[in-house]
Simulated assay, not measured.
Amino acid sequence: MARFYFHLDENGSIVEDFEGIDLPDLAAARASALQAARGIMAHDIEHGRLSLSTYIAIADADGRYLEQLVFRDAVVITGIS
């Protein structure tokens, strides 16, 4: 198990994850970030807003950023002309 941290960046306003969670690997961390992003987006939509440029940066226990999940990549958007 490794500890992963999920930092939220919403248009330059950063919410740091100081606790992190233990997961088996980076693939599991990606899946966790995807689930979190969709949950945040659902909450934001309920309140009449949505920022598709918001992202979750996944970091390891040493503080290295491993990758980021941009919210627009967490959903399939259709019906836009």
Rank of each mutant, 00 (worst) to 15 (best):
M1S: 14
A2P: 01
R3K: 14
R3Q: 14
R3H: 13
Y5L: 12
Y5E: 12
Y5T: 11
F6C: 04
F6S: 06
H7Q: 08
H7N: 15
L8W: 13
D9R: 04
D9V: 08
N11M: 08
N11F: 06
S13C: 07
S13Q: 12
I14F: 06
V15A: 10
V15G: 04
E16L: 10
F18H: 10
F18D: 15
E19T: 04
G20I: 02
G20F: 03
D22W: 06
D22A: 02
L23M: 08
L23H: 07
P24A: 12
P24L: 13
P24H: 08
D25L: 07
D25P: 05
D25K: 03
A27V: 14
A27Y: 08
A27I: 08
A27Q: 13
A27C: 08
A29L: 07
R30F: 12
A31I: 07
A31M: 11
S32L: 04
A33F: 07
L34I: 05
Q35A: 13
A36D: 06
A37Q: 00
R38C: 06
R38L: 06
I40W: 07
M41I: 05
A42H: 00
A42F: 00
A42Y: 01
H43E: 12
D44W: 03
I45D: 03
I45H: 00
E46K: 04
H47D: 13
G48R: 00
G48M: 00
R49M: 04
L50R: 00
L52A: 02
T54I: 03
I56K: 01
I56D: 02
I58P: 02
D60R: 06
D62A: 15
G63C: 09
G63S: 14
Y65V: 13
L66R: 09
E67S: 11
E67T: 13
E67V: 04
Q68D: 15
L69Y: 01
L69N: 00
V70K: 07
F71G: 03
D73N: 15
V75T: 12
V75Q: 12
V75C: 11
I77K: 07
T78L: 14
T78F: 10
T78E: 14
G79S: 12
I80L: 15
S81R: 10
